[in-house]
């Protein structure tokens, strides 16, 4: 039973990876997008690093270094919010029916997709970190830190994918799935400590940021890049990710069970 699940999940995982690699547009954008973010923000807002409290609050005077975490988060979430699109497409094309009629575990369909999303995200984050290093970002926690960043990214990516899967399976509409993704991601990013340190945010934004999971994920990344291993920040990020995952994955599994027989 377990072995069957593994082989089914692996087959579906490989299918998504193959599909992804064959979409040159996607690969192009997953490279271009972080580059644009790096350039836009760090060039336009490099003066942020000169704000008197900035170094004191963040541990670095380089806005690029601080901002790397935001680029990572932005990439993870925009990749994850496209996760539901693949399933919506399968529902429409009849491929889902084909999979369902085959004697496979229903959960393999979901997890194969989730794992493929995770690996995609890991590759993208590696690229961002490489770009970052190339333009002068130093990662204080070293290679192990990079490893930690990748693990957190994969986990955060899967948790966030769950939201997209849920919306996709519920609405069966790719338009809605994309819009919901975009509408939640951007406000959450800017109302968190990802773009600005908490201390420099207006009071009401700080209040929002404190309950915003993006803040904790961003702080974990920032600490790994700027300071090294700060375990309570990593712990907080893991808690935030677990909460999102528990809600989003439960919701998508439930709706999947209900909609797909």
């Amino acid at each position: 039973m377990m072995m069957e699940w593994v082989s089914e999940t692996a087959a579906i995982f490989r299918r998504w990876n193959t599909k992804l690699v064959r979409q040159p547009i996607f690969i192009f954008f997953s490279l271009i997008q972080p580059l644009v973010w790096f350039l836009l923000f760090t060039q336009a807002f490099s003066a942020i690093g000169d704000i008197p409290n900035f170094k004191q609050l963040t541990g670095t005077a380089s806005y690029v270094t601080f901002f790397t975490a935001a680029v990572v988060i932005q990439t993870i979430t925009s990749s994850a919010l496209a996760a539901g699109l693949g399933l919506v497409n399968d529902l429409e094309s009849g491929f889902m029916d084909k999979m369902r009629v085959a004697p496979i575990n229903k959960s393999a369909i979901l997890f194969g997709k989730l794992f493929s999303d995770a690996i995609t995200i890991v590759v993208q984050v590696v690229i961002i970190l490489l770009i970052g290093v190339a333009i002068g970002v130093e990662i204080a926690s070293g290679l192990f830190g990079v490893f930690m960043i990748l693990i957190l990214s994969a986990a955060f990516g899967m948790a966030w994918s769950g939201i997209s899967l849920f919306v996709g399976l519920t609405t069966k509409s790719d338009q809605t799935t994309l819009s919901v993704g975009l509408l939640t991601t951007f406000p959450l990013l800017f109302l968190s400590a990802a773009v600005m340190p908490l201390g420099l945010l207006p009071a009401w934004v700080q209040e929002v940021a404190k309950v915003n999971p993006f803040t904790y994920v961003a702080q974990a990344f920032q600490s790994l890049i700027i300071e090294g291993f700060v375990w309570d920040k990593i712990g907080n990020a893991l808690i935030a990710i677990s909460i999102i995952a528990a809600i989003s994955l439960t919701a998508s599994i439930l709706v999947f069970r209900r909609k797909i027989r």
């Binding site: 599909k19 064959r22 084909k98």
Partner: peptide, 18 residues
């Protein structure tokens, strides 16, 4: 039942990227 049937739907459930 799923183990003993083959099914071809009206929609043609094949993956165009493969």
């Amino acid at each position: 039942v799923r183990r003993i049937i083959g099914y071809s739907s009206q929609e043609v459930g094949v993956d165009d990227d493969l």
